[in-house]
Design a protein around this nucleic acid. Sequence first.
DNA 1: CATCATATCCAAAGCGCTTTGAAACTGAGT
DNA 2: ACTCAGTTTCAAAGCGCTTTGGATATGATG
Lengths: 345, 345
Amino acid sequence: MNLKQLSEILGLSQTTVSRALNGFPEVSEGTRVRVQAAAQKYGYRPNSRAKGLATGRSMVIGHVIPSSSQHEMVNPIFGDFVAGAAKKYAEYGYDMMFTNADDTSIEDAYRSLFQRGAVDGVVLQGPKVNEARIAVLKRMSVPFIVHGRSTGTDTPYDWIDVNNKSSFLRATRFLIDLGHRRIALINGLEEMDFAQRRRAGYLEALEQAGIAADPDLMRSAEMTEVFGHRETHGMLQLDDPPTAILASSMISAIGVRRALDEAGLKMGQDVSVIAHDDDLSYLKNGQDVPIFTATRSSVRQAGEMAAEMLIERIKSPSAPTNTRLLEAELVVGRSTGPVPNRTSK
Amino acid sequence: MNLKQLSEILGLSQTTVSRALNGFPEVSEGTRVRVQAAAQKYGYRPNSRAKGLATGRSMVIGHVIPSSSQHEMVNPIFGDFVAGAAKKYAEYGYDMMFTNADDTSIEDAYRSLFQRGAVDGVVLQGPKVNEARIAVLKRMSVPFIVHGRSTGTDTPYDWIDVNNKSSFLRATRFLIDLGHRRIALINGLEEMDFAQRRRAGYLEALEQAGIAADPDLMRSAEMTEVFGHRETHGMLQLDDPPTAILASSMISAIGVRRALDEAGLKMGQDVSVIAHDDDLSYLKNGQDVPIFTATRSSVRQAGEMAAEMLIERIKSPSAPTNTRLLEAELVVGRSTGPVPNRTSK
DNA sequence: CATCATATCCAAAGCGCTTTGAAACTGAGT
DNA sequence: ACTCAGTTTCAAAGCGCTTTGGATATGATG
C-alpha cells in the first residue's frame, strides 16, 4: 500500500493525503480524520526511503562498531549506552544504524555512512587521545557527538563525558585517607582518553599526598575479567604488594576479586578495592549494600543524554558547541577499609 | 556530489556512469576505469535512499531491542551477538538497523520496520515459549531468522540455536557422576524458550538417575549477577543445601561464586558449579585453565551464522526453511569436583 | 558498398514521497 | 451580482538513483 493507492481509494490527491497525515494546517479536520482512518485501516506506512529522498533527511542516526581486528572485543558498556540512546531516538522518531568496521577502515565507515545519506548524524564512541575521527567528522560537517573527550583535539566539538579525572582523584584520596600508600591502578588501554584522565586523577592525588608513583603498580589493557585477575595476581607477587587497587571497570574488578580470593586475601580487609561502575543493568554493584566501593556513573543515562544532544545538534547545525560533564558519585561499599597493620603481616 | 554531477564532469550519461560503477558488462573497460577513478577522486558515493528507492531493496537488516519497561535490561550477550552479525552484514554489503520498542509495542516495531521499507529482513532475538512475533513476521512474509527457537510454534521458520537441552542434560549428568544428588538450577526467566529447554535437560538427567527434582533447588529470573548471588545465598540456608549448582549464564555464576565466598565455601570443593558460557569477549572463562566448568557456545559465532542464514533467506525467499542446531562443548574447569563427604561436614 | 551483428552509450521513465504554485470553492461584504 | 479574502484541494516538479528500450558507432561479412 503506497500513497498513490491510498489517495485513489480516498478520491483525494496525493498532496492532500500526505498533508493530512503529516499534520499540515491547510487540510480540513473532516478529511484529516477520514484520511487517518483509511491509513489505519489499510495499514499504510510511508516508505522511509522515499520520504528520506524527498525531505533530504533520513531520520537515522549512525553508530560504528569498531570490531577491532586484533582483540575481538565488544565493550559491554556498549549495550547499555546504546539502549539509552535508542530509547531517546525512538522518542524523537529516529532510527539507529550500525556499521561494522575494523580498525583501519573506521574513518571510512563514518564517511560512507554520512555521504551516502544513510544517516543524519553520528555518535562517536570510545575516543582516543588525539582522536583523528573528530577532525574527519568536523571536516565533513556531519552533526556528531562524542561520548568522551579527546585530549589533543583543539577544535571545539559536542561531547558528553564523565569527569574521570576528578572521580579517580577522589577515589584515590579516599584510599589515602584510609591510610593506604601502596595503591595500584588497573586501568583501561592507555591510548583511550578516559584511561589517561583517570590516571591523571590518580597521580594527582598521590602527588598531593606526597606519595611517589610506582610504575609497577600501574597496569593498563583492555578491561576484561581475565586482565584484572592477571595483573592483580602479578602485583601480589611483588616484594611490596599493593594494599589497595583501583580498577577502571566492574568487569576487571571481578577479576581482581578472584585473584584476591585465590591468594586467600579478604577484599576490604587485606586489600581494598575501588571500581569504576558504569551501572550496567546486568551487572549491578550489589543490591542494597554495594559490593564494591565505586565511582558510579550510569552509562545508560549518558546514552540518553548523548542522543538528545545529537538530535539538538541536527536541528541546529550551526549553534555553538555543547558539552556536558557528569560527575560520578562515590558509593562506599564493603570492598574498602583501613590499611591493614603492616607488622601483623 | 551526485550521479548527475559526476556524469556531467565525465561527459557521460548517468546510465553509463551507473553501469560502470555497478559492474555491468555493457560498458567498455576504458570508460569503466575512467569512471571509477573520477568517483574515487570526487568521493562520490551513491545515495543509499535513492538507490534503495530505485532497486526496491534497502540493504539493511533490522533488529529490535526489547527495551523492556519493567526491568530495564540489556542482555550482555546482545553485544557479542550483534558484533558477530554485523561483521557478516558488512561482508555482504548490508547495514544494520536497530529500533527500540517496549514490551507492548514490539510487534508493531517489527511491522513498522518492514512495511516502511526500512529493512530487507529482521532478526528475532530472545524468543519466548509460544512466541507471538514469529506468526506476525510469517504473516507479513518478511524474511527473518530466529536466534533460538519457540516451543509451541508449529509453522516452520528459520532458526539457529544451541542445543540447550542436551548441554544441560550433559552438565547435570556430569555432576551426578561426581556423586552429587542435591543439584540446583539457577535458570533464566521461565518464559524464555531457552530456559525451558535447559530445565528439561536438567530434569531428564535427574530422572534418569532416579533423583527426585526439588522445587526448592530450581530458581529462575533475569540472569544478573545479583540474582545469582541472592538465590545461592538463599539455597545455602536450606536444611539440605545443594552440593552443586548449574547456572544459566556466566554473569549469574559470578554471583554464585560471590555467595559461596561469603559463606566461606570453596567452589569446586565444597560446592561444584557449572555455568553456561556464551564465550563473551569481555568475560572469557579464564585464560588457559577455565575458571568454571561450563557448557560453552560462542554467541558471537551464532551471530555470524544467523546473519549468513538471513542473507541467504533474503536472496531466496521461498527456499525451504533452514535450521541449525549447535552443540555446546563441555569444558571442565576448576569449579567442579566430587561431592564432599557428608559426614565430614 | 550495403548489411548485419556487436559493442557502447544514452534519453527517459519510474521508484514513493514532499512541496511549490495554482486552481477551485466557500461565504462575507459592498 | 461582483469582488475579495480565506479555505481547501490539486497537478506537477523534484529528490538521486536504476533500468528499459533505443540509438549510434564500430567492424566484420557478403
